[in-house]
Design a protein around this nucleic acid. Structure first.
Lengths: 227, 227
DNA sequence: GAATTTTATGAGACATATGTCAATTAATCG
DNA sequence: CGATTAATTGACATATGTCTCATAAAATTC
C-alpha cells in the first residue's frame, strides 16, 4: 500500500469485504508494477495489503484471477476517461493525436497504473484490443476524410500501438520527458500520411491535462450479497 | 533440445565440456523462448539439456549468467549476419528498409532465436543498443542525404525499434505473414519522411532471403584450458 | 448481550526452485 | 592397463511459494 490506492478509495463506503478486496487489488497493482506479473507472488500481495495469506484465497482463486481482475478494471477505467476527454473532438487527426497524448498523460499521472497497464497489455491480447478500441474507428474516419493514406488492418494497429507503448515505457522509466506524448503522436501522424508540418502542429498543440479519478460509490443500503 | 541447436552444432568438434556448455545454451534458448526469462528455471534448462541439475553450476553461476551469455551471443551473431547482408548497400533509404526486413527474416528463419532475441531485447538495454547500433548511423546518413526529415535521437530510435519488434512479435506468433518486414519497413520510411510511393517501392522490392548460419570451428589440437 | 453469520487468520501439507558437495563415472595419458 | 585428471551426478540443506482448513475474531442481528 504505497501510493494512491484508487480501488480502496472507491470502496471506502462499501462493506468490509469489498474494502478488503479493494485493498488486495491496490496491493496487486503496486506489486505487479514493481515486479511484473510473473515475478509477483501472492505472498507479496498479501504483505503489501497487510492481510494474512489465507485472506487472499477468500477473494481470489489464484494470482491469475486477481491479475485479470486488476488488468481489466484498469483498462476499462482508462478507456472510459479517454473517451470522456475526447468527447468534443471530431477531427480524425486531432482525435488520433489526442488519444495517444491522453493515454500517456493518464499513465504518467498514476505511474503504478501506467506500469500495470503496460505489463497487462503485453499479456492479455484482448485487453490491448479494448484499450485501442476507439483507435480503429478514428483511423477509418481519417481514411474517409482523406487525411490518412494507409491501409487500416490489425498489422497497422499493432504497429501504431507499439509506438504508443514504447513511448509510455520510456516515459515511465524517466527516459523521456513530458513531450513524449507529442513526439510519438507526431511520428504516428507522419506514418499515417499527414503532412509533416500539420503533424507537428497538431501533435504539439496545447492540451489541458487530465488525471485518473474514481467515482465515489454511495454506501450500500442493504447487505451486499456478492463477495 | 527441440529445434536447430545451433550452439551444439557449432561445438560439435570441440571438447566435451564445450559441447555440454553448448547443450545448456541451446536448451536455455528453447526454454527462454517458450517460458520467457522470468518463468524459466534452471531445472527446466537442465531437463531440456538432458543433464543433471548439478552440471549446470559447473558452467554457469546462475540463471542470469546463462541468460546473459545466450542473449549476447544471439545478438552478436544476428548483428554480424545483418552487417554482412547489407555490405553492398549505401543508399540510406534502402539500408534502413533492408535492416528491418533482414532482421525479421533472420528471426523468423530461426524462431527460437527470434523469440529469445525478442525477450532479451526487453531486458538488456545495452543489448538493444547493440542490435540497433547500425541504425543510428543509417538514419543520420539519411538526414545528411536529405531523404529523412526527422530529428534523430534516442526517442526516435526507440520508437523505430518498437515498430520492428512489434512486427517481429506478430510474425513469430503467426499473426502476420511473410510481408510483415516489408509492411513495417514501409511504415517506418513514411514516418521518417520518405514519400509514400518511394517508401512502398523500396520496402517491397525483392530481397534474396538469408538464414542464420554458424561457423564450423575446427577441432582443437591441444587440450582446451578454458572451461 | 447472546446467538448467528461473516470475515480473517496462520499453521501446515505439499510443491518446486536454488546452489553445494562428496561420490561416481568417463576420458586421457604415460 | 593403471593412474590421473576432467566431467557428471543426484541427494541434500535451504528457501520460497501455493492453497486448505480448523479455528479465532469481528460484525450483525434479534
Amino acid at each position: 500500500m504505497t501510493a494512491l490506492d484508487l480501488f480502496t478509495l472507491e470502496a471506502r463506503n462499501l462493506g468490509k469485504s469489498a474494502r478488503t478486496k479493494a485493498r488486495l487489488m491496490d496491493a496487486a497493482v503496486s506489486v505487479f508494477a514493481r515486479d511484473g506479473f510473473e515475478a509477483a507472488s501472492v505472498n507479496e500481495i498479501t504483505r503489501a495489503a497487510e492481510v494474512a495469506n489465507g485472506t487472499f484465497y477468500v477473494y481470489f482463486k489464484d494470482k491469475d484471477e486477481i491479475a485479470t481482475a486488476v488488468a481489466y478494471r484498469i483498462a476499462h477505467d482508462v478507456v472510459q476517461q479517454l473517451d470522456a476527454a475526447m468527447a468534443g473532438t471530431s477531427d480524425a487527426v486531432e482525435r488520433v493525436s489526442c488519444a495517444t497524448r491522453r493515454l500517456l498523460d493518464l499513465a504518467t499521472s498514476t505511474p503504478q497504473w501506467g506500469q500495470a497497464l503496460f505489463r497487462a497489455v503485453w499479456i492479455y491480447n484482448d485487453l490491448r484490443d479494448s484499450v485501442v478500441s476507439y483507435l480503429r474507428a478514428d483511423l477509418e474516419r481519417g481514411v474517409a476524410q482523406g487525411v490518412f493514406t494507409v491501409e487500416i488492418d490489425d498489422f497497422l494497429i499493432s504497429t501504431f500501438s507499439a509506438m504508443t507503448m514504447s513511448a509510455l515505457f520510456r516515459r515511465l522509466k524517466g527516459e523521456a520527458g513530458p513531450d513524449a506524448g507529442s513526439r510519438v503522436a507526431q511520428l504516428q501522424l507522419r506514418m499515417l500520411g499527414v503532412a509533416p508540418d500539420v503533424a507537428k502542429r497538431v501533435a504539439f498543440q496545447a492540451l489541458d491535462p487530465i488525471t485518473l479519478t474514481m467515482p465515489v460509490i454511495p454506501r450500500e443500503t442493504e447487505r451486499s450479497k456478492k463477495n
